[in-house]
């Protein structure tokens, strides 16, 4: 069963003095299946939040339609089975954590006994049991993000929509959110979350959609998206004289890097790797490692963005690759 389906979803906003139309989402056709974690990936301003807000009925589409759990998103009743955490959420700071969750529980019409039990459970789940009586104005950013997650789960939803749930969190907080998303999947929930933090998406998503400039440019399972094609083969060796270094620099697809006695360089194909290894052995060099290097999601993402947004860097900064 499809949890999310959109057909030709398009959104235009009017901006500026002359109310010019700006199209921020182009003909989006998206499907999210039941029980999967779907990562919606894109640079800032790509249209992630617009998509999320269209699905949540916060804004209306200019064209196209969207369904959640088989019902049109304009049907208020469908929201009973949905949880949502907006991007950079602002909450009612005058409420305590407990009152805050109680309020949202009331909006779902959850009976008081069940509500009380659910609030205690959620406060425990997000690690805020001791902060339940504290007003939200005294919460840290991480605590606000966690209470936000708790409000998204108050109705035990079938589908959870999280807009940038890891933004602003420290590494520990991000891991906690990742674990929480995985535990939701384990309970059979569907999670649709947007992010620009690629490692988070890579670590937990079943399928990924990449959106750039309001257009969905890739969608599919992670392994399919990344493919099995080799990007390069990293070789590290030591004991090379100057002549050998010059020769290796010619083979390498990027400038060799020295670390202590070791030299790291990369060749483009398996055949080239075999030839280089043969030459190195002939020159009496010591080979430490030969590592095939496949594209990470980050590299894949950056290439896609660079192809569609001229002026952006095509490759990540040196030193951030998987190799040396």
């Amino acid at each position: 069963m499809l949890v999310v389906k959109t057909e030709g979803l398009t959104k235009e906003f009017r901006t500026g003095f002359w109310r010019t139309r700006v199209r921020v989402l182009h003909d989006l056709n998206l499907e999210v299946r039941q029980g999967e974690i779907f990562g919606y990936l894109g640079p800032n301003g790509a249209g992630k939040t617009t998509t999320m807000n269209l699905l949540m009925g916060l804004i209306y589409p200019t064209a196209g339609r969207a369904w959640i759990l088989g019902r049109d998103v304009s049907d208020v009743a469908v929201k009973a089975a949905v949880g949502f955490l907006p991007e950079n959420p602002y909450f009612y700071t005058y409420l305590t954590g407990w009152e805050f969750l109680n309020f949202y529980g009331q909006l779902f019409g959850i009976p008081s006994g069940e509500r009380r039990r659910r609030i205690e459970e959620l406060l425990h789940l997000v690690g805020l049991s001791d902060a339940g009586k504290l007003q939200l104005r005294k919460y840290s950013k991480g605590m606000l993000q966690r209470i936000g997650l708790a409000q998204a789960l108050i109705n035990d939803p079938q589908a959870v929509f999280l807009d940038e749930p890891m933004s602003g969190l420290d590494p520990v907080g991000r891991k906690e959110v990742r674990d929480l998303i995985l535990s939701l999947k384990a309970k059979g929930k569907t999670v649709f979350f947007s992010s620009h933090i690629i490692p988070d998406v890579e670590m937990i998503c079943d399928r990924v959609g990449i959106i750039v400039n309001g257009r969905l440019i890739r969608v599919g399972p992670l392994e399919e998206l990344l493919g099995s094609e080799l990007e390069s083969i990293e070789i590290s060796a030591s004991g090379l004289d100057d002549a050998a270094m010059v020769e290796m620099a010619q083979w390498s697809v990027r400038p060799p890097v020295h670390r202590g006695e070791k030299v790291f360089f990369a060749v483009g194909t398996e055949k080239e790797a075999m030839q280089v290894v043969e030459r190195l052995l002939k020159m009496g060099a010591l080979i430490h490692a030969i590592l095939p290097h496949r594209l990470t999601l980050e590299e894949h993402f950056l290439r896609e963005v660079a192809n569609r947004e001229p002026g952006r860097r095509a490759s990540p900064e040196p030193g951030r690759r998987g190799g040396p």
Partner: peptide, 14 residues
């Protein structure tokens, strides 16, 4: 303005 409306409108309420 404070975007608290986001969490309200996304709930089953007209």
């Amino acid at each position: 303005d404070r975007r608290t409306i986001y969490t309200i409108v996304s709930k089953p309420i007209h």
